[in-house]
Design a protein around this nucleic acid. Structure first.
Lengths: 341, 341
DNA sequence: TAAAAAACTTTACTCACGTAAACTTTTCAA
DNA sequence: TTGAAAAGTTTACGTGAGTAAAGTTTTTTA
């Protein structure tokens, strides 16, 4: 492959003594040509440096090999991680994934959707911003491109894959009630459906246990959840405004901020008798292992969510284009007991 | 734009009464046509739903509007953050950035380079893996595509933009020596040139101050630096093998792991008299604000690195293609004093 | 070994747009 | 009002590959 460069398939056809249509077939699917021709082509490919021009390839194909991936905020390790897994699955399946991020803003989300759309992808996996999404834009996109929505259920696309917030929230509320003071719920103004569902699930779970739900909402509208948790947490601790010494946070990033707030205010966090408060999170975020103390939380099943999303998308792409009805798949979470609660 | 769909420029030419070459000019640069024609085009665009086909556009242009961005590991918030800034600058300048990640592996880095190359981008901004890079592949890429290398200096491409590890390391070593026990240096096997330079800089700075440098290397070859810091840290603390109670970590992520290790081993971290050890990092990583205690570190000038990289690339793209010689720009770090050291 | 099937070659057209050349119309300053 | 200069139109060709149809060669099957 270090050899001379070759401009196009016609030139490759000459030097390999294989006709261009056959070469075209080969690049579409190497298995679709006879073994002997495949070998001829591959020896030529070793000798000459050639890669088909993507733009020319995709111009005529109805079905490109591109897959669009859109996440609301790539600097959040949860999305970075899930995007990573999806990307790898796509590469393995011979597709060309391209990752886009909305960076938390509607304008950029629409921008990314438009860019993706003009890439005419075979399919897309998108996690919409949620509350800030331009739903019309997302709907129009999903009409055009076979789309699997993950993480944030906005009721468009052919399928949704996500996390069972009710199951997981009940799990951790049960645990917290069983092992100490019933938790209050610490949240910020909800950015997406998950946050809302978690609040509702908390209320339900508490009522089922005969406890009074207590919700504490702190201000904040950015994607710097830790900062919001830290600032809000410090204020609440100063004012002794937390209704319970056990705090269930709407997500791990908020919990990380709250743990830092407790530390800075000299409050010991954990479940021992010498501890002033218990803090629990939700997600099993990559960082939650490294907080002080390590964070007790409920996991999201990252790999299942990523794998299933891709699986469903490939189904969609291969077999026709539409499911009979919209499929929603929710994965259960597991209790991750560490020492913060 | 909710109107009927239009297939191609010819159809748009008909409905807008503007010739196709002029339309082509308009899409290339809306400012390049007379105001009256621009308005005609734009009213047609509001009525009919049309976007030029990217593939057809790029097939013919020598200069596409695509910019490739490659980072070694996108799940690391440092790179996520810097990629985010670069992306935004590119969008603002009217380019189409596409982010790729090597996910820490050479094979995927080469893969990403190949994909980028076949996108025939106007330019690329790449942060190579470093030690694990296939240097030949990177060099060949940079020969083909105007390339600015950032973060990890591998001596290819037209320019390098990065962080002044010598200056910053000296800064924090000075600070640590001035305010307490001289630090030992905590590292893992270096993945890239920065890690090596930091070690060298540490040794130099210590010697300049008449101190004996002490280096502690823990095992680990993954990109889970926190995990490496945590495991290595716990072992060192158990065995009382740290040569100093002040530890300068090669980077913040390692420091985050080490802080967790100290916490788990019951050692209080900070600079008070009641503290057992001081821990400092390097990078001012997005998380370093939320450790317990908050991490004292030296900042990398994220925004300058991102901005200058983009600036240089645009220079390269616009004015000719080559600099006389390879330009290296290093930005200084600042001491970020928090309470861990 | 003959016939049928599979794979390949040749030829020719398509896709949607970039772009160059020659010509026409509009704009604007002298 | 005139005459460049600027902007637009018409025409025509290029890009690199997908793909269809008709014919040829190779392989497989009976």
């Amino acid at each position: 492959m270090a050899g001379q460069k070759i401009k196009n398939m016609d030139e490759l056809a000459k030097v390999s003594s294989i006709s261009r249509p056959t070469l075209s077939k080969y690049f579409n699917d190497p298995e679709s040509v006879r073994k002997t021709t495949r070998q001829k082509i591959e020896t030529a490919l070793e000798k000459y440096d050639y890669r088909p021009n993507i733009f020319a390839i995709n111009q005529n194909r109805k079905l490109t090999k591109t897959i669009g991936i859109l996440v609301p905020y790539l600097a959040d390790p949860f999305f970075a991680e899930i995007a990573r897994r999806i990307e790898l699955s796509c590469i393995e399946a011979g597709f060309w994934p391209t990752v886009f991020s909305a960076h938390g803003e509607q304008e950029l989300e629409n921008n990314a959707l438009a860019t993706m759309q003009s890439l005419r992808p075979a399919g897309a996996l998108i996690a919409p911003l949620g509350r800030r999404s331009d739903f019309e834009a997302v709907r129009r996109f999903a009409e055009d491109v076979p789309t699997v929505v993950f993480d944030s259920n906005v009721n468009v696309g052919e399928a949704f894959v996500g996390h069972d917030n009710f199951q997981s929230t009940e799990l951790i509320v049960d645990y917290l009630c069983r092992t100490g003071e019933p938790p209050c719920f610490f949240e910020m103004p909800p950015l997406n459906p998950n946050a809302n569902k978690r609040r509702e699930a908390y209320v339900m779970a508490m009522e089922n246990l005969g406890q009074t739900p207590e919700i504490v909402q702190v201000d904040g509208a950015s994607w710097e959840f830790e900062q919001i948790g830290l600032e809000g947490g410090k204020r609440l601790i100063e004012q002794r405004a937390l209704p319970s010494n056990t705090v269930l946070c709407s997500n791990d990033r908020l919990a990380i901020g709250l743990i830092a707030a407790a530390y800075q205010k000299g409050l010991r966090v954990g479940h021992g008798p010498e501890c002033a408060m218990r803090i629990a999170g939700h997600d099993d975020h990559p960082w939650s292992r490294y907080t002080c103390p390590p964070l007790t939380t409920v996991s999201q099943d990252y790999s299942s969510i990523a794998d299933r999303s891709v699986e469903i998308l490939f189904d969609l792409i291969n077999g026709g284009n539409k499911y009979q009805s919209r499929v929603e798949t929710l994965f259960k979470g597991n209790l991750v007991l560490r020492s913060s609660a």
